[in-house]
């Protein structure tokens, strides 16, 4: 894959999340029917989890493209921010006690996405770090077969 492909995948995931976030009002506004609201919320959480899982899968397939992409961190940060916002709405909802497990699973997947983003930044910083270059050299010297 290439940087352009990974950018497109993240862009698509972000658009899907945005669409899901817009639909999120449904489960908050259908105040007359608790079951309808619960179904809407469950649908939203399943959809969101699928988006996140698909995206992490794509990123893992092309970590190099993800590292090189300039757009990826910008889009990912927006996606994570949007997802965390959604989680906060669910956390404050009266329906939350009924979806605790799904909530925890979704939160974990979003946190994993955030970890990939964090690791990308660390990886780039280590690449530029002079001290790390010395550590690599010292390790290679120490491990040299006698």
């Amino acid at each position: 894959m290439s940087v352009a492909t990974i950018d497109l995948k993240i862009q698509t995931a972000y658009k899907e999340s945005e669409a899901l976030a817009r639909k999120e009002l449904n489960w908050q506004e259908k105040i007359d029917n608790l079951l309808d609201r619960m179904n809407e919320l469950s649908g939203f959480m399943d959809g969101m989890k699928n988006v996140v899982l698909r995206l992490t899968f794509e990123i893992e397939r092309d970590m190099e493209g993800f590292r090189k992409s300039k757009q990826a961190p910008v889009l990912m940060k927006k996606l994570v921010k949007l997802s965390v916002g959604m989680l906060n709405v669910i956390r404050k909802s009266d329906l939350y006690p009924g979806v605790k497990t799904s909530y925890a699973n979704l939160k974990q997947e979003i946190s994993y996405l955030n970890e990939l983003l964090h690791d990308r930044e660390v990886s780039l910083a280590l690449e530029e770090d002079d001290e790390m270059k010395n550590i690599i050299q010292s390790t290679l010297t120490a491990a040299k077969p006698e």
Partner: peptide, 20 residues
């Protein structure tokens, strides 16, 4: 939580020292 750059460097140094 996630490890930071310095944590990774410390681990790399720990490995280098252990090898040496």
């Amino acid at each position: 939580d996630n490890l930071e750059k310095e944590d990774y460097k410390n681990i790399a140094v720990g490995i280098q020292k252990a090898i040496a």
